[in-house]
Each structure stands twice: as structure tokens, then as C-alpha cells.
Design a protein around this nucleic acid. Structure first.
Length: 368
DNA sequence: AAAACGTGGTG
DNA sequence: TCACCAAGTTT
């Protein structure tokens, strides 16, 4: 690298750290800036947990889940010995449920290794930890001299240097660019500063350039081309799929079963449902199982839900039985236990839709 | 390499 | 309404 650029990077790095010292966000898993210089380090377990939760998930959403999770499982030992279903229940609504499966398996792995590894190369051997998360944990928890590269860092660097390379194919280019900023000086704070800058100042839309410590050095800002960076491959349009679900309630609660552990919503609870396909038609009598007989199924309309790679429209039917009606392969989830159950947001929406149509018909009014 | 994998917020 | 976006990883 040219000497002038190396010198420039040193200058910019110090400007960013100074900005971070006065502007760092106060987050539940974070130590205040410069605490590392006084010999303090954050709890590696807390850093690991927060980084897994933050994968493709906003800070505002993660905060609530993180606090509940760390209170329920204060240490890696607590997590390792917990039943998987308890972990999934705490993860319900957060999405990308494979993360919760990996987290639980990784807790046992970490215990076997005698603690959270300190080196990126070793961290990456653990389930759910890829190149970004390995670098983030190493830098933040252990002050290892690496620069984690996430969406924030890609956006900040692409604007600063006017990097035209198209993501995600250009990820290696960004990774290489970022390591040029590596230093043995406050690696943890620098990593977090870069991400805070991207999250609060150098935002995807309408960045607050006037508040940016790098404004005078930023290529995109000088040319008013912030919106052009980073360059990304355009996404394909999502297909729409259709299905039908049945919300059956009796005095013991709503009928649910556990989904397969792999794949979409793996290991989470669902109400009786068809598979999801391209056919929009539905039949209220054709359930996936032997649904309770002799009940009246009410049309609950449909609910729309959007997954990462397809949109879903689910037709909802609901019914109430005043006496208990067990179904083989299914369990009853008490209505007072819905909030603490391993129900994905989609299923929560479906159950709410089913209950409201019953309530509107004054059916089982004191029950549903 | 490209697709699978959630959800809620935002313009 | 709709497309994009968020501290990515796995297959």
C-alpha cells in the first residue's frame, strides 16, 4: 500500500476513535469506550451471544431479546445444560432459528474447549460463527488485531474510498481493504466505532454527513454520491406461495405440533397447516391430519407474511370445542402460555387471526 | 456461486 | 404496496 494512504488511514482511525469516545451507543452487551485501556474486557459469552443475535437483525430488536436471554442463561454453562426447546422459546420472533440451534450446540462445544476461543481461525470452527463473527468476537472480546467486515463496514468504506466493486461478489475486496485499518491500538473499540458510524451516521439512506468525523475525507460525500454506494447486485423478485392453517382451540388450549428441526422455522411450533405451494386455492375440509370432527370451521380470512425468499398468504380456519379433543402427534398449548412458547411470528399471527374470528362470533367467549 | 434462511422498520 | 435493509452463515 502506498505510504500516503497508510498515513491517512492512521489519521482517520484516530479521528474515528475520538468520535467513538464521545458518541458510542450504550448497549447492554457493551463496555464503555476505552475501558480496555484500563485492563477491562467484556464477557466473551456476552459478546458471542450478542453477535449471533445481531446477524442480519437490528440493534433495536436484539436489545430486548438479549436482555431476556442473558437473564435466563447468564453463563455459557447455563445455556449448554438448558433444553433446546427453552432456547428456541426465547428465540421465538427473532428469526433465522438455525442460529438458536447452532448457539445451543456451540455452547457445549465452547465448554469442551474450556471457554470462548480468542483467535478468529479457531472461533470460525464453532457452529454459527463465520468470518465476520469470528473477527468481531476476537476484536471486541479479546482485542485481537482484526477488523470485522459487516454491512456497515462495507457501506462506510465504499463511500469513503468510492469503491465501485459490486457486492456480494466483492466481499474479498472489502475484507482486504478493511484489514489495512488493523492496528494493535484499541482493535475492539475500533471495530465497534466503525459499526456505530455505519449504523448512526453513514446510514443506507439520508446519511448524516454533517455529523461524520470523516466528512472532509469522504469521496462519496464530496461528490454527493452517497446513495450510489455500496454497489450491490439487484435482488430477484420474491414469489408468492399459498397455504391453509387451522386454529383449533379447546379448554386445554390451541392445537400445535413441532416442525422438523432442519429447514424453515426448524424446531418451532406450528398449528396444523398444509405445505406451502403455488396453488392459491384452499379447502376447509382437507387438513394435514385428522382434525377434530364435529366442529364448525369458521373462515378467518387470510394473513400475509414475508420470508426472506418468498411471500406467503395463509388462509385461516378456526374452531372451538367445549370439551378436550386430543389429536395424535399434536399437543395443546395453553392460551396463557402463548407468549412464552416457541412460536414463530407467522404462527402467532395465525393464532391471533383464528382467535379473533371466534371472539367475533362469540364462540367460546370466556375461553378464547 | 447461488440459494436458503425471519422479522420488523422505513421511505 | 413494495423494495430495501439489519453486527451473516451454511450448504
Amino acid at each position: 500500500m502506498a505510504h500516503y494512504k497508510s498515513k491517512k488511514i492512521t489519521q482517520l482511525r484516530e479521528q474515528l476513535l475520538a468520535w467513538y469516545d464521545r458518541s458510542a451507543r450504550d448497549l447492554p452487551w457493551r463496555l464503555p469506550p476505552a475501558q480496555g485501556l484500563k485492563g477491562q474486557r467484556p464477557d466473551p459469552y456476552a459478546v458471542w451471544l450478542s453477535e449471533i443475535m445481531l446477524q442480519q437483525t437490528g440493534v433495536a430488536t436484539v436489545k430486548t431479546y438479549y436482555v431476556a436471554f442473558i437473564n435466563r442463561f447468564p453463563t455459557v454453562q447455563d445455556l449448554a445444560k438448558a433444553p433446546l426447546d427453552d432456547v428456541l422459546a426465547l428465540w421465538a420472533g427473532l428469526g433465522y432459528y438455525r442460529r438458536a440451534h447452532h448457539l445451543h450446540a456451540a455452547a457445549k462445544d465452547i465448554l469442551a474447549r474450556g471457554g470462548v476461543p480468542t483467535q478468529p481461525q479457531t472461533l470460525q470452527k464453532i457452529q454459527g460463527i463465520g468470518p465476520y463473527t469470528a473477527a468481531a468476537i476476537a476484536a471486541i472480546a479479546f482485542d485481537q488485531p482484526v477488523v470485522p467486515v459487516d454491512g456497515n463496514v462495507e457501506r462506510v468504506l465504499s463511500r469513503l474510498w468510492l469503491i465501485e466493486a459490486i457486492l456480494p461478489a466483492a466481499k474479498p475486496i472489502f475484507w482486504h481493504e478493511a484489514q489495512a485499518w488493523m492496528s494493535t491500538h484499541r482493535p475492539g473499540d475500533f471495530a465497534q466505532a466503525l459499526m456505530d458510524l455505519g449504523a448512526t451516521i453513514c446510514t443506507p439512506r439520508t446519511p448524516a454527513c454533517n455529523l461524520c468525523p470523516w466528512q472532509s475525507s469522504c469521496g462519496a460525500s464530496k461528490q454527493s454520491r452517497q446513495g450510489e454506494f455500496p454497489k450491490k447486485q439487484v435482488n430477484k423478485k420474491k414469489p408468492t406461495r399459498y397455504g391453509t392453517s387451522w386454529v383449533h382451540i379447546d379448554p386445554d388450549g390451541v392445537l400445535v405440533t413441532k416442525r422438523a428441526h432442519s429447514g424453515l422455522l426448524g424446531g418451532m411450533l406450528e398449528v396444523p397447516s398444509t405445505s406451502w405451494g403455488d396453488d392459491p386455492s384452499s379447502d376447509p375440509c382437507l387438513g394435514p391430519v385428522d382434525l377434530p370432527k364435529g366442529v364448525t370451521w369458521l373462515d378467518g380470512g387470510y394473513i400475509d407474511h414475508v420470508f426472506t425468499h418468498f411471500a406467503l398468504r395463509v388462509r385461516v380456519f378456526s374452531a372451538y370445542s367445549p370439551k378436550s379433543l386430543p389429536v395424535v402427534g399434536y399437543q395443546r398449548l395453553g392460551l396463557d402460555a402463548l407468549a412464552g412458547a416457541a412460536l414463530p411470528s407467522l404462527m402467532h399471527k395465525i393464532i391471533v387471526a383464528g382467535r379473533s374470528i371466534l371472539a367475533a362470533q362469540s364462540i367460546g367467549l370466556d375461553q378464547v
